[in-house]
Computed example of a mutant assay.
Amino acid sequence: MRPTPPDERVLARRRLVGEQIRRVRKAHALTQHDVCGRSGIDIATYSRIEQGHSSPLLDTLIRIADAIGVDLAELVRR
């Protein structure tokens, strides 16, 4: 059985989280490649997360936060 696709509210929140990750990364003067090198996340996967096209696992969000040098909460704030 296929999982139910997320509703628009969830998709919108996913995009907001991606935008917040991008803002935090840029505020720390890091490129996507910098974060990927520090976290071990594939650049294509990371790009999809920032664009809101992919829903990252909690472990992945922790790795991103650690790579940027911020608390996890900073990545998911509105």
Rank of each mutant, 00 (worst) to 15 (best):
I49L: 04
R38H: 12
Y46C: 05
S55I: 04
E8Q: 13
V24G: 01
G52L: 01
D7E: 14
V24M: 10
L16T: 11
P5E: 07
I64F: 01
R78S: 13
G37R: 12
P6W: 03
A73R: 11
V35L: 08
Q20G: 12
Y46M: 01
G52N: 02
H28A: 09
V17Q: 01
H33N: 09
R2H: 11
A29R: 14
L61S: 00
A29M: 10
G37A: 07
L58F: 15
Y46W: 10
A67Y: 00
R23N: 14
G52T: 00
R14K: 10
Q51S: 13
R9C: 04
R63H: 11
E50N: 05
G18W: 03
D59L: 07
I43F: 04
D59K: 10
S55V: 08
V35S: 01
Q32M: 11
I43R: 07
S47N: 15
C36A: 04
R14I: 01
P5H: 06
P56N: 06
S47F: 06
K26E: 14
L75P: 01
A12V: 08
M1S: 12
P5F: 07
L57D: 15
P6Q: 09
R48Y: 05
H53C: 11
E8T: 07
T45F: 04
E19Q: 11
V35P: 02
R48N: 12
R13F: 04
R23F: 07
I41H: 01
E19T: 12
L11C: 03
A73E: 11
